[in-house]
C-alpha cells in the first residue's frame, strides 16, 4: 500500500516504513537508545530526502522514548535528578552543536565530516562496549566479579559541586556529568542523532550507574532532547513530515513496548555485548561506504527549484 508524503513529496510503501519503525522501536526500547543512528541510514536508503529524514526523526524518537520512559517510570527505574542534570548539559551542547553545524556547512565538505565522525564515534563506542562486555562475560564465567572497594573514587568524581543521586546510589560531582552530556548534545546536533548510544555506555562505564536505571534515565533525557529538536526543525527548516512521522511513530511505539520487555529479561552483560555489536555493525556499514570503491562515483543533488 502506497501513501504520498506531503513534505517529502514522494510516495512510500506504508508497510515498509511501518516495519522499519517497529524494528528501530524495538531496539530503542531494549537498549534505551533513540535509534536515530539506525533509522537515518535506513530512511535515506529508501530514497527520502536527508533533510526530511533528519527532521522527522525527532517526533518518532520522542514517541517511542515516551512509551519506554513511562514503562521504566512505573518500575521506578528513572533517576529524574540525574536526568535533569544530563538534560541541562545536553541542551547547552545542542545549542553549540547547531552553531558549529552551520559554520561547517559554510566551509563545505559537511557530508564527509559527518561520515567520518560516524565511523570514528560509532566505531569507538562500539569497540569499547563490545570489548568491555565480552571481557566481563568471560570474567563472570571464571568467578565472582571483583567489586570496586568502598571509598575508592576516580579523580573526576571528587570535583567540587558534589550532589547525591539517591536513585542511582551515587554521590559525585555534577561537573563531569554536565561535560559528558554537553559533548553528547554537541555531537548529536552535528550528526543528527539523539546520542543515547553514547550516553548509555558513558553512564555505565564512567559513572557506574546501575544498568536498569541507565536505560530509563537515558530515555527520559532523549525524550526531552527530541521534543526540542522537533520544534527547532519544524520552525527553521519546515522538513518535519506529518505522515511519515505518524507511520514511524505507530510502528516505533509498538516496537518499543516489546523491546522494553525483552530488555528487562536479558542478563545485563549479554545486553551490553549485543548493544556493542549493534553499534559496531553500523560503524562498519559507514566505513565500507567511504573505504571501498563506490559502484556509482557520481551523485546529483537538486540545489534549488524554480516553480
Amino acid at each position: 500500500m502506497e501513501i504520498y508524503l506531503p513534505i517529502a513529496e514522494m510516495p512510500v510503501d506504508v508497510f515498509l516504513i511501518l516495519g522499519m519503525g517497529v524494528a528501530v522501536g524495538f531496539i530503542s526500547g531494549m537498549f534505551g537508545v533513540g535509534g536515530g543512528f539506525l533509522l537515518t541510514p535506513l530512511l535515506i536508503f529508501v530514497g527520502i530526502p536527508p533533510a526530511v529524514v533528519v527532521a522527522t526523526q525527532g517526533p518518532q524518537i520522542a514517541a517511542s522514548s515516551m512509551t519506554g520512559a513511562l514503562s521504566y517510570w512505573r518500575r521506578k527505574a528513572i533517576d529524574f535528578k540525574l536526568g535533569g542534570v544530563l538534560l541541562a548539559g545536553g541542551l547547552l551542547g545542542t545549542l553549540l552543536g547547531v552553531l558549529f553545524f552551520n559554520q561547517m556547512r559554510r566551509i563545505g565538505q559537511l557530508e564527509t565530516v559527518i561520515t567520518i565522525s560516524y565511523v570514528v564515534l560509532l566505531g569507538g563506542v562500539g569497540t569499547l562496549v563490545s570489548w568491555e562486555s565480552l571481557r566481563a562475560v568471560a570474567m563472570s564465567r571464571k568467578g565472582p566479579v571483583k567489586r570496586r572497594r568502598a571509598g575508592r573514587h576516580a579523580w573526576y568524581e571528587g570535583l567540587p559541586l558534589k550532589w547525591r543521586f539517591h536513585r542511582s546510589g551515587l554521590y559525585i560531582s555534577v561537573i563531569p556529568i554536565l561535560v559528558i552530556a554537553g559533548l553528547i548534545g554537541f555531537a548529536g546536533a552535528v550528526l543528527g542523532i539523539g546520542g543515547g548510544f553514547i550516553l548509555v555506555p558513558a553512564l555505565i562505564y564512567i559513572f557506574r550507574v546501575p544498568a536498569q536505571i541507565v536505560v530509563g534515565t537515558s530515555l527520559f533525557q532523549i525524550l526531552f532532547t527530541m521534543l526540542a529538536a522537533t520544534i527547532l526543525h519544524a520552525s527553521t527548516n519546515h522538513s518535519v513530515d506529518l505522515f511519515l512521522a505518524l507511520i514511524l511513530m505507530v510502528g516505533g511505539v509498538f516496537g518499543a513496548q516489546f523491546g522494553a520487555r525483552a530488555g528487562a529479561q536479558i542478563r545485563s552483560d549479554y545486553f551490553r555485548v549485543l548493544l556493542g555489536l549493534l553499534i559496531l555493525s553500523v560503524a562498519v556499514r559507514f566505513a565500507t561506504d567511504i573505504l571501498t570503491t563506490p559502484k556509482e562515483p557520481f551523485s546529483a543533488t537538486l540545489t534549488e527549484t524554480v516553480r
Binding site: 517526533p59 520522542a62 514517541a63 515516551m66 512509551t67 521534543l227 513496548q257
Partner: peptide, 14 residues
C-alpha cells in the same frame, strides 16, 4: 503540535 502528538501516541501505546 508534532511534539504533543508524539507524546500522546507514546502515552497511548503504554
Amino acid at each position: 503540535g508534532m511534539a504533543m502528538l508524539s507524546l500522546f501516541i507514546g502515552w497511548l501505546a503504554s
